[in-house]
């Protein structure tokens, strides 16, 4: 399998604290990999290890087929990154900051800077000092730096941070296009689950330093549990009738929830049963768990 990122038993400890423990990541080329986790779950530590910015306590990292570190060794010409919050030299303009990056990435084409500022929508601010940019535009500058050298792999830590809703959509479309049209692999950490849900083709969930689940986005749809939600005026009568018929019923927030294939596949039978019991339904709908609920359930189970 052609992997863009591969970690084997990756662990990093800071004294007695195990920030990351035995993480085995496998990111295929061309994937958009959403890396989910709560604050302090180990997302940024993992990203730093992928970029050779920290020495793992144990395990190894391969990026684009090359081993990473020590001494800054890695395929960095083909990797764009944004780790934690973006940074820039505040007294230098947007253009000057990107020119420094262009030269340090060894890009001969002088137009690269102009092209990337246009792509990221910061052309109007190109001669403005980085220190005077708004949070959103500073984030765009960080993303521009990551995209400047047209990398094969993008490693982005919370790319939507600080962006307004329009900016979030714009960056999502940009990343989607890069993956679709240019085959760029995107590895992005996020705590904005809806963003990951919309964008990622594969999802990894890290919790307390351990990778607790790794799955394709399509598989997630299957895994997310489905329930039948019923609202009635006479909840007690409905609950009794459904119980007698052998259904597993749970009441929550004024609704009744039924799980299991039998209930989900035949809501019409359910309606008939409730009408006969004198508690006709006023709402009857199959609800699917959101990624957020799946994530919270999973991290809750691993407490």
């Amino acid at each position: 399998m052609d992997l863009a990122i591969e970690t084997m038993g990756l662990s990093k400890s800071y004294g007695p604290v195990h920030a990351v423990e035995n993480v085995n990541l496998r990111v295929r080329r061309g994937e958009i990999y959403g890396f989910l986790g709560l604050n302090g779950a180990g997302k940024t530590t993992t990203i730093r290890a992928l970029l050779g910015m920290i020495r793992p306590t144990a395990g190894s990292v391969r990026v684009l087929g090359q081993p990473v570190g020590p001494h800054g060794r890695g395929p960095w010409r083909d990797v764009g990154h944004l780790v934690e919050s973006p940074t820039a030299y505040p007294e230098l303009t947007v253009r000057e900051n990107l020119e420094i990056a262009r030269r340090l990435y060894g890009i001969a084409d002088r137009k690269a800077t102009t092209q990337v500022v246009e792509r990221l929508g910061i052309a109007p601010y190109v001669d403005r000092k980085a220190g005077t940019l708004s949070t959103g535009n500073f984030q765009r500058l960080g993303l521009a730096r990551a995209l400047l050298h047209e990398p094969e792999l993008l490693i982005l830590d919370e790319p939507a941070n600080g962006l307004d809703p329009a900016g979030v959509v714009e960056i999502r479309e940009l990343l989607e296009n890069l993956a679709r049209e240019k085959g760029v692999t995107v590895f992005m950490s996020s705590h904005i689950l809806t963003e990951v849900n919309r964008l990622a083709t594969r999802i990894g969930i890290i919790h307390k330093g351990r990778l607790i689940e790794e799955l394709d986005a399509e598989k997630l749809d299957e895994l997310r549990s489905q329930r039948l939600e019923i609202k009635v005026h006479d909840q007690a009568a409905a609950q009794a009738a459904l119980g007698q018929a052998g259904y597993d019923v749970k009441a929550s927030n004024g609704s009744l929830f039924l799980s299991g294939d039998r209930a989900i596949s035949a809501p019409d039978e359910m309606a008939t049963l409730l009408v006969h019991a004198g508690a006709p339904p006023i709402r009857l709908v199959v609800v699917q768990e959101e990624l957020e609920a799946h994530f919270l359930r999973l991290t809750g189970e691993n407490e």
Partner: peptide
């Protein structure tokens, strides 16, 4: 102080050159 040190670590330009 500008937190730019991390940007110097994963670059094709070797750290020694910088």
């Amino acid at each position: 102080s500008d937190h730019t040190a991390k940007e110097l670590l994963a670059l094709p330009t070797p750290r020694v050159a910088i």
